[in-house]
Design a protein around this nucleic acid. Structure first.
Lengths: 176, 176
DNA sequence: ATCAATTGTTGTCGTCAACAACAATCTTTC
DNA sequence: GAAAGATTGTTGTTGACGACAACAATTGAT
C-alpha cells in the first residue's frame, strides 16, 4: 500500500499540481469548507448577464414543473401559442418570429404533430411551405396550457413582486 | 415523371396532413409569407420567461462577441471571477455558489487549467478536495477580462438604457 | 430556359443542465 | 477502533438547445 498512496482519482491533478505541501492560501481563513452563503462574488454582482442567467434558470424550472402534468416545455408552449394566434403561418415565419432556427423547429413540430396538437397543411399558394394550424385537440390543450402558464406567472410574481414583474416586462419588451 | 410527382421531401406531411385543398385559414389575410414583423404573439407577450429567454440570448451573444479576442465564455468568466475573489475555494463550493453542477465544473476547470489560468492545489485539510487558485497568468488575464466585460456591460446599458439596467440588477439581485 | 433565392429537412458540432454511477476520502456512530 | 453513511471529484449518458452546413424541391427573377 505504501508504494502508491495516490493511485486512482485518475487525472486528478495531472498537469499543474505544483504540490506545495503547506501552500498558503493567501486567504487567511481557509474558506474551502463553508456552507456557500458567505462567498463573495466580487465583480459578478453588477453583471446583468449573470443575474439574468440565474433568473432564467429559475423561471424555466418553475415553468417545466408547473406544466409537468401536461408535459409541455417553454419552447413548445411558445410555438403553439404563436400558431394558435396566427393560423396558417409557415415554419419559416414562426421560426423568425420566435428567434429559433428552422432546423430546430422541424423537430419541435414533429413532436407536436405526433401528439396531434399541430398539423402541417400543404400551402395552397407555395408548394414548398406548410401552413401550420392547431388541431381541435391542440386548441383545447392550449387552453389548459395557458391556465397553467398563468399559474406559473403567478409564481414569478410571488418571487420577485407583482410590480417588479410588470417593470421587467416593460424593460424587456424590446426583445419580444 | 408523372408517375410520382411528390416523391421526396421525405416525411413531409406524414401523419396528419388532412389535405384540405383550399383550407380556409380562418385568419382572413393569409399571413404565411409576411416579413415576420406583424405577427401577433398573443399570450406570449406578458410572459416573463419568454422575454428573459430572448434577452439572455442577446446578452450572451454580445458577451461572447465582446470577449472573443480572449476566447472566454460567460461561465468561464464567472468561475475565474469567483476564484479570484475567494482563493482556496473547493470545487464543490464554487459549483454551489454559481449554481452549476460539480460535474460540469470539472470540464470548465480542465480547460482553464490547460490554459494556465487556474490551478488545483490539493487541500491541506481535506485530501478529497482541491483548493482553487488563479495562477499569476490567470490574475493578469482576469484583469483584462474584466475590462472587456465592463465594455460588454456598457453595450447592455446602451440597449436597454442606463437606468433600466440598474433597475434590472436590483430586481434580480435575489438570484445572484 | 437558366440561375439565384427560399423552404423544409437532415446531419453534425458544441454548450449546457440533469442525473446516475464510482473511487477516494471524511465523518458519524456503535 | 471498525463499520456505516455522507461528501468530493470524476466519468458517463441523456436530452434540450443554438449554430452551422449541406441537400432536394420549389419559386422567382433574368
Amino acid at each position: 500500500m505504501a508504494s502508491q498512496q495516490k493511485t486512482s482519482r485518475k487525472a486528478a491533478a495531472t498537469a499543474a499540481a505544483i504540490r506545495r505541501p503547506q501552500a498558503r492560501t493567501a486567504n487567511g481563513g481557509a474558506h474551502a469548507g463553508e456552507a456557500g452563503d458567505d462567498i463573495g462574488l466580487d465583480a459578478l454582482v453588477g453583471h446583468v448577464g449573470y443575474a439574468v442567467r440565474r433568473f432564467q434558470l429559475w423561471i424555466f424550472q418553475d415553468f417545466i414543473k408547473t406544466l409537468a402534468t401536461v408535459d409541455i416545455r417553454p419552447t413548445q408552449y411558445s410555438v403553439m401559442t404563436v400558431i394558435g394566434a396566427n393560423p396558417g403561418l409557415s415554419q419559416m415565419a414562426v421560426a423568425k418570429r420566435l428567434g429559433i432556427e428552422r432546423a430546430r423547429l422541424v423537430h419541435l413540430l414533429d413532436s407536436l404533430e405526433e401528439r396531434d396538437f399541430v398539423s402541417r397543411i400543404p400551402s395552397a399558394t407555395d408548394r414548398r411551405s406548410h401552413a401550420l394550424h392547431l388541431t381541435a385537440r391542440g386548441k383545447t390543450a392550449l387552453a389548459r396550457f395557458k391556465r397553467l402558464a398563468a399559474e406559473h406567472e403567478r409564481h414569478v410574481a410571488e418571487k420577485i413582486g407583482k410590480d417588479n414583474r410588470e417593470r421587467l416586462l416593460q424593460i424587456l419588451a424590446c426583445f419580444t
